[in-house]
């Protein structure tokens, strides 16, 4: 199993002053997957990623990166897009990408060639020779992302990659991440935007308050919450409320309620028998957003926040 893991971390701890910013986080990221690290602001996501990459040393616990106990030894097989984007403003876009590849062992000549190909493939062909300072924020961010994949890493770590991008570039970035996964790379990314995680992640972990609160697939996360029904009667009488479950809420013309483990059939049958009829009925699966709010909210309650 360890051979199948791109990243393995056990009991990672990081203190800033007296505060445990990361407090015993375990992670197991299988190779070839897109893995999301989700959490609210200040949850410890970035610190966890920085420890995994060896930028900072943990105060406790252990981690391996592509089988190396010292992350630095795997440096050439890793690509990284930090949360705080940074490029040399006076560099040309092509040179910036090649430079980032060179830091990871790719020779500059090959780096420049690949940079041009990558930029053209991602709609930045016109900006190959533009200086970074001339690019828009979104374009510069995309250039930096291309710099993190130019050496074709086995592991790509992206910290909040979607922040600051417009919808078009967000979609482009999603496609790029999927393409990297399809190429065989493992992608670990952090975000607090659930929509991206829901679309992209094969597995995910939710971190809150420095601790890991959930680990599994998106479906498993959503499965933590029961499904809900949205029912709209033909004519809304006073007796409808009496036939619905206790948590039923009146929303607009209809009602929303949690479906019991036994299903919604009994409730619906009773409503029909009582003559309220069905004008509309939909079954709503809870989204990752709901699961996230529930998990993080529960964690906050436990922590007394």
């Amino acid at each position: 199993m360890p051979d199948q893991l791109a990243i393995s971390a056990t009991g990672l701890i990081k203190k800033f002053g007296d505060r445990n910013v990361v407090d015993g986080v375990d992670l197991a990221v299988p190779k070839g997957m897109i893995y999301g690290v989700l959490g609210p602001n200040g949850a410890g996501k970035t610190t966890t990623l920085r420890m995994l990459l060896g930028i900072i040393e943990p105060d406790g616990g252990s981690r391996t990166l592509l089988g190396h106990d010292r992350p630095r030894e795997a440096s050439d097989q890793v690509g990284y897009l930090p949360e705080e984007r940074g490029l040399y403003p006076a560099m040309k876009a092509r040179d910036a990408i090649a430079f980032m590849g060179a830091l990871r062992g790719l020779d500059l000549k090959t780096g420049r060639k690949r940079a041009v190909a990558l930029m053209e493939a991602n709609g930045l062909g016109h900006a190959v020779d533009s200086k970074i300072r001339k690019l828009s924020k979104g374009m510069a961010q995309l250039v930096q992302l291309l710099g993190s994949v130019v050496h074709e890493p086995e592991l790509l770590v992206l910290d909040e990659p979607f922040s600051g991008l417009d919808p078009v570039n967000q979609e482009r970035l999603e496609a790029l991440i999927v393409a990297q996964r399809d190429r065989g790379a493992t992608i670990l990314f952090s975000t607090h935007v659930m929509a991206h995680a829901e679309r992209l992640c094969d597995r995910l972990a939710i971190i809150s308050g420095g601790k890991r609160r959930f680990e599994g697939t998106v479906a498993e996360a959503r499965g933590m919450l029961p499904m809900r029904a949205h029912y709209v009667p033909h004519h809304d009488g006073a007796g409808v409320r009496d036939l619905l479950p206790a948590d039923a809420e009146h929303i607009g013309d209809g009602w929303r309620f949690t479906i019991a483990d036994t299903g919604a059939e009994d409730v619906i049958r009773k409503l029909i028998d009582a003559g309220f009829g069905i004008s509309g009925l939909s079954i709503e699966r809870p989204g990752l957003h709901d699961a996230f709010v529930r998990i993080v909210g529960k964690a906050a309650l436990e922590a007394g926040q």
Binding site: G54, S75, G86, L103, G147
Partner: peptide
């Protein structure tokens, strides 16, 4: 320029 994070990681 915030490049230090890129350098420190690599």
């Amino acid at each position: 320029n915030k490049v230090v994070e890129v350098l420190a990681a690599a």
